[in-house]
Design a protein around this nucleic acid. Structure first.
Length: 160
DNA sequence: GCCAACGTTGGC
DNA sequence: GCCAACGTTGGC
């Protein structure tokens, strides 16, 4: 099983939105980057867990956990001419873009902010993809070590 | 295959 | 709103 970090702009789709969806589940559509596409298509497994990360907002932070309930399958928004994610070069016969399903699992008592992560020497030493200069991927892998550091940060913040 | 121009991301 | 960093596009 793998760990991931998945970015979303909370104005568009926050962890609260996910929590309110039917079955607290939603497909993660709209990825239009090949590196991320490859991860969605090839590396996501049912049961994987991901940090839900709020980006492009006042306090960028990992705000909770989601669980992967369906592995990579074609992103149908690419087939819809009315969708902002439409891509004429993607077809049902030869899909170019993929998505997974995620289910709400947990909201952290307090978000683990980007600022706090940058201030954590262990995370910095672990070469965390999120903290790499110029890192812009909307989905990135998280190691088991990084995962446990971030969860312990979430819990430590809770105890304060 | 190179690379300039352009678009996007995302923190600040 | 700014801008650094990166990805994509398309002319050559």
């Amino acid at each position: 099983m793998n760990y991931w970090l998945m970015k979303s702009e909370p104005d568009t789709f926050s962890i609260e939105h996910l929590k309110q969806r039917r079955n607290q589940t939603e497909h993660w559509d709209g990825v239009r980057n090949y590196q991320v596409r490859n991860m969605l298509r090839d590396d996501f497994n049912v049961g994987d867990q991901a940090l839900f990360y709020h980006s492009s907002c006042p306090v960028p932070a990992a705000v909770g956990i989601v669980t992967i309930t369906r592995a990579g399958y074609p992103d149908h928004t690419a087939f819809d001419p009315n969708s902002p994610y439409f891509d004429a070069k993607s077809s049902a016969e030869n899909p170019r873009w993929f998505m997974v399903d995620v289910q709400y699992t947990q909201t952290f008592p307090k978000p683990v902010t980007l600022k706090a992560m940058k201030a954590n020497p262990e995370l910095l030493a672990s070469d965390f993809a999120l903290l790499r200069k110029g890192s812009r991927l909307s989905i990135m892998p998280v190691t088991a070590t990084q995962w446990s550091i971030i969860l312990s940060m979430a819990n430590a913040q809770h105890k304060q």
